[in-house]
Structure formats: C-alpha cells, structure tokens
Design a protein around this nucleic acid. Structure first.
Lengths: 140, 140
DNA sequence: AGAAATTTGTCCGTATGTATC
DNA sequence: AGATACATACGGACAAATTTC
C-alpha cells in the first residue's frame, strides 16, 4: 500500500519477500527473477527501491545480476553430495494463452503471454517442470 | 501583520487554516498540499511546527502523507478497506502430459501428471499463474 | 545483418522521516 | 526554534548490454 508505516524500510520488506521466494523454491537456482519493471508493478515501488532490495540479495550472494540480462538466483547456494546433481534449466518464451489461463488473466484466448519454464533435474532425471505465466508488459 | 494567537498553539492555528482550505475546496480531494518548505515560508513557522500541523490533519484522516511524495487530501473520506495485498490460490489436479512435457519426463504423451497450479492475485487482478508438473507417485 | 524492444546501470532532482546539535 | 545531516523513497532521463523480431 502507498503508506505502510514502517518499522522497516520498504526495500528490506521487498528483499525479505524475494528471499522467501528463492529459499522456498518458487524461484529455483539458476532461475530468473522478475525484471525490475515487473517488480516495480508488483510491489508498487519505484525502481530505485526495487534495485535497493535486489542489492541486498546481491550482497548476500543469493543472486547475481547481469547487465541487459536480468538477475539470476545463484545456483551455487548449497552444494549437495557429489553425484546428487540437482540442476535447473530455465527458458523464457512467448506463448498464446490457453482458454483457461486467458480467463484467469481476463484476456482473450490466444493473447500472447510470457512463459518462463524451469526444468529441474535430479541426477539427470526430470523431477519437475514449472511454468510461470505472466502478461506481457506493455509500455509503462 | 497577523497578531500572534495567544491562547492557541501555532500549529493548531495553521492546521485550522489548512483544514479550511480543504473543506472549502481550495485543495481538492486527491490534491497535493503545499510542500513543507512552501508552508514553512508561507506561515513563517519552523518545519517542525508545520509537520505538527499536518500531523493533526493526518490524525483526522483528512490527509494522507506518502513518504517521498507529499501530503494528499484523502479522496475517500468514508470508505477505506483496500483489501490490501497479494493472495495466492492453490489447486492440485491430474492432467495428461502434453507432448513437450512428456518428452522431458521421458514418458508417453498423455501420461497422467500431477499439476499444481498457483494463481497469484494482487488487489484481485491476476498477476501470475504458475503450474508445476510432477510425475504421479505410484503406491507401494 | 539491422532495427526495435527489453533490461540493467547510472545520475539528477525533489520530498519526507528521523536524529542530532 | 532553527539548522544541518543522513536514510528512505519517488520520478524522470539517458546510456549500455542483450534479446527479439
């Protein structure tokens, strides 16, 4: 909300939320964080504040940021036993919305959505496939 | 020259004046109050006094102050249940694997998978749809 | 291969919150 | 009361790296 009286600065609250998503696996190792613009919309905070929040996670070595690319969750967070390989492959693409998802977003079926797919493998075998859909960002 | 108002603290006099401007429509609902600096110059009072005056109006819910923005005249005097924030709805179901996912799991297309769908809403509007697919666990 | 759109990097200006002297 | 300093926060603008079309 516009004016949450603080016991804590906004950027720390946002950082905490993002850290929870990472630790909770909502954003897997190697996965891409939402862009600064998306986070701006989601948290209704200015870009500077979002960047400050991400800087916190970067200081914790929880994420790494690449110019023009985005911010990734550091895959080398906890190395497990050798041989017990857990790896995640991320891909982002644009897809037409199926009727069900279109209804959720309140758009026409076929509307272009952004799909981020994370494939997690354990010892080579696919363990889970996660697909996150979002509206493609218009000018803002 | 304005005679000093003894009998009433300065910040109350200023608060009264500002309240009159708001009630009188000089500053419309949703409108921005003059900045503290401007008010400081106008009333020839210290910033602390000005802030105290604004605090009075804030206590009356007549204005809302936003950090880094300014102080607005409250547009909704009577209703204030924004419902706030983010909520996630989770649903689990079984679905047949589409060819692409089937290939990832190395199973036949149409094989039953467990799909967990999380729908995140922000203020009612769908922000993201996340679908996680896993192989169905067989009983043992 | 080139143009347009995305996304992060950086800087400036303004405003409020808090603390100190 | 006043002055100053710093942290937090918003908004705009432009540059640089990358991806998409």
């Amino acid at each position: 909300m516009p004016t949450p009286h603080y016991g804590q600065p906004r950027y720390r609250v946002i950082a905490d939320e993002l850290r929870q998503r990472i630790k909770g696996g909502v954003i897997p190792p190697g996965g891409l964080l939402p862009t600064e613009s998306v986070l701006t919309a989601e948290f209704r905070a200015s870009r500077g504040t979002i960047r400050q929040a991400i800087a916190v996670l970067r200081d914790e070595h929880l994420v790494v940021t690449e110019h023009g690319r985005g911010t990734y969750v550091n895959p080398h967070q906890h190395e497990s036993r050798p041989g017990d390989g857990r790896e995640t492959e991320t891909r982002q693409r644009q897809v037409p919305a199926d009727p069900e998802i279109a209804a959720l977003f309140a758009v026409e079926a076929g509307t272009t959505l952004v799909e981020q797919q994370d494939v997690t493998r354990i010892n080579g075998a696919v363990e889970a496939v996660v697909r996150a859909y979002r509206l493609r960002r218009e000018k803002q």
